[in-house]
Design a protein around this nucleic acid. Structure first.
Length: 879
RNA sequence: GGGUGUGUAGCUCAGUUGGUCAGAGCGCUGCGUUCACAUCGCAGAGGUCACAAGUUCGAGCCUUGUCAUACCCACCA
């Protein structure tokens, strides 16, 4: 017996445990069928589930469950990411509470501490994914720092290095002074601010009294200036080219050079060149062979190459201005809108800094990654995202992969005492290589830098499947079927996976990439902790159940759009679950069981034929939409069928049968209802796995678990059952009339139908009892020819004829007149439209014949209806 | 500066190739509890599909422009 109330908290967790313990998420490797696989976008170990995950994982789980039911060999590969910077920050913060810094511990101890932390609190998000119902094969859970994955990282690194695709270079990189590491371009957020533009002047060497005027937003960097650039085209200033000027305060002589980087229209036309601290100036410096003077320490304080060593850039800026003012060189300061780079993790200002770093030759790797998208081997869904992808890939810069952190994959690089580099997968191999190189045993020191987290994530699609070891999983499930992720990590992850996979596997990592939007708050604002508008999915699940949240995500997911989280809507889908629950209870109470060997093709009652056909139609629709990744269409199709068709009509239509006495009809209807309900549970299962499973288990003894139940294959559409649609139309018309005319619910009405076709007459005969019961009529019958229409009869157009409703003084005739007039107006408007169209010569000539015919048919129909309404109006005019 | 979206009912949004597309949910209004369900039922109101021009026999749907709005990339010394 089902509980009276739908209470998801009673069974959701229990059901999940059963799935996991029974191994229901594992692919059946013995089976020969087609494979379907997804690798989860690995959440950070430090992560807790947010609504973005809830969306992402729900979509994946729907696909996974759907394909599993399609009988495929299905693997959803789970795991987490070591998230270098994020995790190191979390652990450092914890240590800070005890007043310890990571330097107190030392590298080795610190890493131990991180592993300990991971063991204790790293699994939160995986527990939460289970609560959401994610059917990942947890027995295969991976971590980017696992031994296996680390081996993959080392192997790829060495291979890339030996292929010349990884190189070391002293370059200007984005330096995060708080974290003390380089970061990639993607990890830098450009933020608009109103800063200042400082105007001052440098004296020209030799001649007194002549100056070159400079504008800059960062005066403190002047100590790193090694030139001033002027454009050759600059008529006013070009005479200064070739002369020298004197850098004030430090009184260093620097040349005035010709370079087109200096735009005569901007600023003063003369640009100070600081090659070691500005990306553009770096290029200028290279062109002119300028010295590069580094003026910053790793914590972004000024160094001993400046007079303000130890000061922050802000302090130094003030000091510089003061000094320049004292020297009478300061001219003006203006407000200036500008963008300032910030570290996405640390939130501090990023400084371009000259350091030794390691780079991946992304432009080379991008070639293949672009090609396979161009030729469709990997398809973005929606397609429009490939533009974004191409745009970025075609302009890609070398990827800085070294990080001066402790937590991460330490690079497999060893140095000889003379700086010779040995890149090998293991220390032993490195030493062997060194011995070969030097001709004797030598000591090596290992590179301390670790790799960017995204380096290992880039291998995720094959490293999690056991690469580099050749194995059955890799063979079966690579390339994976589809990657589901948000547009915000196309560059971070999708692009890198494409590059790495094409390099290592010569095959795409996934055949399709489904990109979804962001989950925003109810007003469409981005959710953020600082705004305080985040919603914890766990709380939503607690309140409405995981099924409701999942269905919400599916129903709202339309391609290429963000989702606004709406609690009332989640509540609505909880109500949907309640509705289904109660419908199942109705079936249970009426003893609906599926008899052995029941075939929906054998049903005789019109109503049963009808629901079977509708169930098939809904199934076809859901299937088609899921195949096309149209989640909202799929969800709405099943929603509409369950609520609008099964509950609103079928159950109501079966009541007269169940409360009647025809044993044969009752038996057939019980069987059919049970069959349809089972169909609902199967088709709804990918969306709402918990309630469907709970009902599946409770309603009958089952030979197969719902999670493995076969997805229905609808071969041919069953014939429709027109009598039921006809009856529904009639019932709705009568209900509408009752409501519009304010007829009391208790009033038992007698309805006549006039001028009915023979089909309609036949339908009426079949449906008479049903219609009476659902429309609360005393009777409904054909209006005999020659019978007189009395004055108290309300008339309403129905199908090809007229519906007559005698009202012995229960009705307000003024209101009725108004209603008829309104209808007449409508008809007139439509008729005008039809007339206009049909009198249009070119329409009649050029539109397809069936369209024209349809238009004519509608016109004729409207004409008839108009006559009927006018007659009815004339009839009641005196009442 | 370059690029990509979005603008449809009070709100949040569907609307796949131009011709049953003017829709859903919530909200609102009226009526209704004899037992599947008030986490409900029945009925209803409400929209010049941002604006303008164009293509077409026919335009939320295609083209161009305008306005509004969101985001991405690059850069502004």
């Amino acid at each position: 017996m089902l509980e009276k109330n739908y209470n998801p908290q009673d069974f959701e967790e229990k059901i999940y445990q059963d799935w996991e313990q029974s191994g229901d998420f594992k692919p059946d490797m013995r089976q020969s069928g087609e494979a379907f696989s997804i690798v989860i976008p690995p959440p950070n170990v430090t992560g807790i589930l947010h609504m973005g995950h809830a969306l992402d994982e729900t979509l994946q789980d729907i696909l996974v469950r759907y394909n599993r039911m399609q009988g495929k060999k299905v693997l959803w590969q789970p795991g987490t990411d070591h998230a270098g910077i994020a995790t190191q920050m979390v652990v450092e913060r914890n240590l800070a509470k005890e007043g310890i810094s990571r330097h107190d511990l030392g590298r080795e101890k610190f890493i131990e501490t991180v592993w300990k932390w991971k063991a204790q609190s790293g699994g939160t998000i995986c527990k939460q994914l289970r609560r959401l119902g994610a059917s990942c094969d947890w027995s295969r859970e991976r971590f980017t720092m696992d031994e296996g994955l680390s081996r993959a990282v080392r192997k790829i690194f060495v291979s890339l290095y030996k292929d010349g695709l990884i190189f070391k270079a002293k370059k200007l990189v984005n330096w995060d002074p708080k974290l003390g590491t380089a970061v990639s371009d993607l990890e830098v957020i450009q933020q608009e601010t109103v800063g200042k533009m400082y105007y001052y002047k440098y004296p020209i060497e030799g001649k007194t009294g002549e100056y070159i005027h400079i504008a800059t937003t960062r005066p403190e960097t002047m100590f790193g200036d090694t030139a001033v650039a002027v454009s050759k085209e600059n008529e006013k200033l070009k005479h200064l080219i070739g002369k020298n000027c004197i850098l004030p305060i430090v009184n260093r002589v620097i040349p005035i050079i010709a370079d087109d980087h200096a735009d005569p229209e901007k600023g003063t036309g003369a640009v100070k060149i600081t090659p070691a601290h500005d990306f553009n100036d770096f290029e200028v410096g290279k062109r002119h062979n300028l010295p590069m003077i580094n003026i910053l320490n790793e914590d972004a304080t000024l160094n001993e190459n400046t007079p303000f060593a130890g000061m922050s850039t802000q302090e130094a800026r003030q000091k510089t201005i003061e000094k320049l003012t004292e020297l009478g060189l300061m001219e003006k300061i203006e407000d200036h809108p500008m963008v300032i780079p910030y570290g996405d993790r640390s939130g501090v200002v990023i400084e371009p800094l000259m350091t030794d770093q390691w780079f991946v030759d992304a432009p080379k790797l991008a070639v293949e990654a672009i090609r396979v998208v161009e030729n469709g081997e990997m398809q973005f869904v929606p397609k429009s995202y490939e533009k974004t992808y191409f745009e970025w890939m075609r302009n890609i810069q070398p990827w800085c992969i070294s990080r001066q952190l402790w937590w991460g994959h330490q690079m497999p690089i060893w140095y000889g005492s003379d700086g010779e580099i040995f890149c090998e997968e293991t220390e032993e191999e490195a030493y062997a290589a060194a011995e070969k190189h030097y001709g004797k045993k030598v000591e090596l020191t290992r590179e301390t830098d670790v790799l960017d987290t995204w380096f290992s994530s880039g291998l995720w699609a094959f490293s999690t499947l056991g690469w580099p070891d050749d194995n059955e999983y890799l063979k079966t499930f690579y390339p994976t079927s589809v990657l589901v992720t948000g547009f915000d990590i196309i560059f971070f992850w999708v692009a890198r996976m494409m590059m790495m996979s094409m390099y290592a596997m010569k095959q795409v990592p996934f055949k399709k990439c489904y990109i979804h939007g962001l989950v925003r708050d109810e007003q469409g604002r981005k959710m953020s902790k600082s705004k305080g508008n985040t919603v914890d999915p766990m709380e939503t699940i607690e309140k409405y159940g995981a099924d409701a949240l999942r269905f919400f995500m599916a129903a709202m997911e339309t391609q290429g759009r963000d989702i606004n989280l709406s609690e009332s809507r989640v509540a609505g889908y909880r109500n949907f679950a309640t509705k289904l629950w109660n419908a199942a209870r109705f079936c249970e109470m009426n003893g609906c069981k599926l008899p052995e060997g029941f075939s929906p093709d054998s049903v005789k009652l019109e109503v049963n034929k009808w629901i079977v056909a509708k169930a098939d139609a809904a199934t076809v629709e859901v299937t088609r939409h899921l195949n096309d990744f149209r989640f909202s269409d799929a969800a709405n199709a099943i929603y509409q069928f369950v609520w609008g068709t099964f509950c609103d009509w079928y159950i109501e239509l079966t009541k007269p049968i169940f409360y009647g006495e025809n044993a044969e009809d009752i038996a057939e209807t019980k069987a059919t209802a049970a069959w349809v309900l089972d169909r609902i549970l199967v088709v709804l299962h990918p969306f709402m796995p918990f309630i469907t499973t709970e009902l599946w288990n409770n309603l009958a003894e089952r030979k197969v678990k719902l999670i493995h139940a076969p997805w229905p294959q609808v071969k041919a559409m069953r014939p429709a059952a027109p009598a039921i649609d006809w009856a529904i139309d009639l019932i709705s018309t009568i209900r509408s009339l009752r409501s519009e005319m304010n007829l009391p619910a208790s009033a038992k009405l007698h309805v006549y139908l006039k001028n009915m076709s023979s089909d309609s007459a036949a339908y009426l005969q079949d449906m008479q009892t049903l219609v009476c019961s659902l429309a609360r009529l005393e009777n409904v019958e054909l209006f005999a020819d020659g019978q007189e229409i009395t004055k108290d009869m309300v008339q309403n157009v129905f199908k090809e004829g007229v519906l007559l409703l005698p009202l012995k003084g229960v009705v307000d005739f003024a209101a009725e007149r108004e209603r008829l007039n309104k209808e007449l107006e409508n008809l007139n408007r439509n008729l005008e439209n039809y007339a206009r169209k049909l009198s249009n010569q070119s329409f009649v000539e050029r539109a397809p014949a069936n369209v024209v015919a349809e238009e004519k048919r509608r016109q004729a129909e409207a004409m008839e209806n108009k006559t009927k309404v006018e007659e009815a109006l004339a009839r009641i005019v005196g009442l």
